[in-house]
């Protein structure tokens, strides 16, 4: 394997709250090879956004990286100064958010926002930057770019605004784009358009993606590799194919069984009993143990390490074999 474009090892993100330390991300490890798309999936509050933001030093002021390494294109980001990080954010890495409305400047024409990086960072002339903006708008499928270049964000639909965000993200030719729920606020039709666009960019430009979503199906369609997060921890990793067909963590298994599968209608949907823990005082041992159908005594003791299962597969469950048996008994997704 070539050197990963992104390598994250034991990442911890902590909030200092009045009631104590809240570990929003607790020992996350994953990597992304050049041209690869990694999905990070989990329910709300599981730490996906904080993990993603930590990669580029965009954490809330009350949060900090407590430990761990983040290496982007060979550069140790956690050791880098703010200047170096900003440089990285401007060039190598770009980020796309769920609500482009809040990420865009409301009083600036979208064309100028797309042209900003080429103008300021890449030192293009005004004319060249405008041409570049128009090219990018065409690339991301914004119809009638010569007219839309003059528009303000509020004059565009949600889907068009997200395309503008993607154009801005692409404007410095990044190697890696971090996407935080980029289609969650959009209709399924528009989501499909945006996912196809991101897929095409990855294929044609060779950019790598880290794609955060709570929607398993969205991850299944956009990513080749996945990290499942629960209560601040990565509990399972592997290729999307392997994890979705044969989950090896009871949380992944429960999640897959509780979402309606478009291709396989079930009489009764199963669900995961209980709710995720408060991250300020997570359960001892396996954090999922209070909700787990396979729980044994040793699940309640010492923290469970990530257990390597070969290749890129790993699980934070001592009884992952039980998942395998369960899947053999009844497939989790259609056509598995």
């Amino acid at each position: 394997m070539s050197r990963p474009l992104l390598r994250v090892e034991g990442l911890r993100v902590e909030f200092n709250l009045a009631r104590g330390v809240l570990r929003a991300v607790d020992g996350a490890s994953f990597d992304v090879q050049p041209g690869e798309a990694l999905g990070i999936v989990g329910e709300s509050g599981s730490g996906k956004t904080m993990a993603l933001r930590a990669l580029v030093g965009l954490l809330p002021r009350t949060a900090r990286i407590a430990s761990g390494t983040v290496e982007i294109d060979g550069v140790d980001v956690t050791a880098a100064g703010e200047d170096e990080r900003r440089e990285l954010r401007g060039r190598t890495v770009a980020m796309i958010f769920q609500e482009p409305k809040t990420a865009l400047n409301p009083v600036m024409r979208v064309g100028e926002q797309i042209a900003e990086t080429p103008l300021v960072r890449l030192g293009l002339s005004r004319r060249a930057a405008r041409t570049r903006a128009l090219d990018l708008m065409r690339l991301v499928g914004i119809p009638d770019p010569t007219r839309r270049v003059e528009a303000y964000p509020h004059e565009l639909s949600g889907g068009m605004r997200q395309r503008v965000m993607i154009a801005i993200a692409l404007s410095a030719d990044p190697k890696l784009i971090l996407c935080d729920e980029p289609t969650t606020a959009l209709d399924v039709t528009i989501q499909d358009q945006i996912l196809k666009l991101l897929g095409a960019l990855q294929r044609d430009l060779g950019v790598s993606l880290v794609f955060v979503s709570h929607d398993l199906a969205v991850i299944a369609q956009t990513c080749t590799k996945v990290a499942v997060m629960y209560a601040g921890q990565v509990v399972e990793t592997g290729t999307v194919d392997a994890v979705f067909r044969e989950p090896r963590h009871p949380y992944t298994l429960g999640l897959l069984r509780s979402v309606p599968d478009f291709d396989m209608v079930r009489e009764h949907l199963s669900s995961i009993p209980g709710s995720p823990p408060d991250l300020a005082s997570p359960p001892a041992g396996c954090r999922f143990h209070p909700r787990c159908p396979f729980v044994q005594d040793d699940c309640r003791g010492a923290p469970i390490p990530l257990i390597e299962l070969g290749g890129v597969r790993a699980t934070r469950c001592l009884y992952h074999e039980r998942c395998a048996e369960d899947v053999r008994r009844e497939p989790v997704i259609a056509g598995a």
Binding site: V188, A220, R245, D261, D263, G335
Partner: peptide
């Protein structure tokens, strides 16, 4: 347009 759980579909 519906994203599917089956990878690659």
């Amino acid at each position: 347009a519906v994203p599917r759980l089956v990878p690659g579909r």
